[in-house]
């Protein structure tokens, strides 16, 4: 089968979402890693770090989730 015939909207949307998930994945990994380090160094500030970590995760994750929504929009179009 020709490559041009195999490229569909669905495939492109899935590929683009996969690419879009790389950045937030690295971001969340780094963020949580640093938060764990901070909690290990200063267990008494663990509560504050945890709240801030969830806030940060929420902001970073938004990018991946926008990619997820665009994935469905791209599949439909």
């Amino acid at each position: 089968m020709l490559l041009a015939n195999m490229v569909t909207n669905k495939g492109l949307a899935a590929l683009t979402y996969g690419l879009g998930a790389i950045g937030p994945g690295i971001g969340i990994g780094y963020l949580v890693g640093q938060a764990v380090q901070a909690m290990a160094r200063q267990p008494e500030s663990a509560g504050m770090v945890r709240t801030t970590m969830f806030l940060g995760i929420a902001f970073v994750e938004a990018l991946a989730l926008i990619g997820f929504v665009v994935f469905f929009l791209g599949q439909a179009g």
């Binding site: 994750e61 989730l65 926008i66 929504v69």
Partner: peptide, 13 residues
Amino acid sequence: FSLMVRLFANLLA
């Protein structure tokens, strides 16, 4: 917008 998309997309996913 980000509040909306976060809740929606997480649960849809």
